[in-house]
Design a protein around this nucleic acid. Structure first.
Lengths: 231, 231
DNA sequence: TCTCGGTTACTCGAAATCGAGTATTCGCAT
DNA sequence: ATGCGAATACTCGATTTCGAGTAACCGAGA
């Protein structure tokens, strides 16, 4: 699977939009916004114009006319080409059928949990869960409204999917906070003890990391073998 | 909330790593890999070195020594500064407590479902679900192994989170395929009819989009009012 | 009539991102 | 002894990305 000539998902949206009818870039951007697609696909002007010219360079779209009304900036209207339609179809196929690893910000944070004391992590995770619950209500309200407008789900499935992701995240955050609190998370005991040494006895964390056996004894056997590169 | 001076999550990982002990960039990269953190945080050499020098420029880390062994490339060892520790703490707080919108690739695809006929979408979504189920088994096996090694969950929570996200996605994909198949998704009927006109009668899709009432009648009232920008 | 905020439509350059490429050394099998 | 693949440790420049900036026009109210 060679890499796409134009890889930005915004390019995919541009092809999709021009698949409906010819438009100029700014019109594409307002259309994407009015349909809420900018919530699923990162849209910003700089990228939009650079992506459009990249698509043109590779023959996926072509300029069909350039209008000048009064002294306004020129508007260049683009249309999709055959090659562009093929590229779009191929891209959509890939987007739907092949999961692509994308990195969520929370994962980065979770990877460094031990850098904070357990109590602080619990607090932060619960803050997150609360924010997420508010977002969930937002989404539910919006969906209610869309339904009231009579717009079929078909046109906002992506929003339903996002809602599911947020629900999963909220659930995970608050479950994790609970697990830490109740010492159900493996390693939480060691974690708590470590911070007690640091906070109550003033032993610097770097010492603990350098010679864990000295401070924790043999109670935590995995300290001996992992992380392997730390010794 | 002003933007971070160095915003790449990899910079966060660098700060976290140097929080343990001074290291040179390549050592950071191998450590991140050996702990599997490269699965949660996008790591590549180009970014690593540019991020390190950006962190140094802003005083979050500083070079402590430069070694040259034989004719090998120089290794510059960096240590975290006080400012760097503060930045890391602030960043971790934000990562844990404040959900940040990140765009998943699938959302982009879902936003353009109507561009393919329903049957094709069903097929692709089921392919995806199958791939995801394989990934889930992979994760479960890995977790089993980590547990067998005695490494506490605390050090791989981020992987548990990812697993939950993948489960959600698999569930969503296969549920959606079912909903389309069973006409449980609002708008699916219209969708199917549209493609029948295109495929059986050879009417070009662009005609349908231009004058939907002509082809669909009043049966789908939302066509009249939405999308507003399409008229 | 003036003006003032909002919309239209795009430009520009600084910064970030990427990943292939380079050059040396090490271990190990032949 | 030698060859060769893997590991070490980075470099470099071509894209990409970003978002603030620009400049004209539009309509409503003072």
């Amino acid at each position: 699977m060679a890499k796409r000539k134009v890889a930005n998902p915004l390019a995919f949206a541009v092809l999709g939009s021009l698949g409906e009818r010819p438009m100029h870039p700014y019109e594409i951007s307002t259309m994407l916004k009015s349909r809420g697609k900018d919530l699923s696909i990162r849209l910003n002007y700089g990228s939009l114009y650079s992506v459009v010219s990249a698509l043109e360079k590779h023959g996926f779209i072509k300029a069909v006319e350039t209008l000048r009304e009064g002294n306004r900036p020129e508007r260049t209207v683009y249309a999709i080409t055959e090659a562009g339609q093929a590229e779009f179809a191929d891209w959509l196929t890939e987007l739907l059928a092949r999961p692509e690893k994308d990195f969520s910000q929370l994962e980065a944070g979770l990877a460094y949990l031990p850098a904070f004391p357990p109590a602080k992590v619990i607090e932060l995770l619960e803050q997150r869960a609360e924010v997420l619950r508010a977002e969930i209500e937002q989404f539910e309200a919006t969906h209610e409204q869309l339904r009231a407008m009579g717009l079929p789900q078909l046109f906002w499935v992506e929003s339903e999917f996002r809602l599911e992701l947020i629900r999963t995240e909220a659930e995970f955050a608050s479950r994790l906070a609970d697990r830490i609190r109740n010492d159900e998370l493996e390693g939480a005991g060691f974690w708590r003890q470590g911070y007690e040494l640091v906070e109550k006895l003033g032993i610097p964390m770097t010492d603990l990391l350098r010679d864990p056996v000295k401070y924790f004894g043999e109670e935590f056997p995995w300290l001996q073998e992992v992380p392997p590169e730390a010794r």
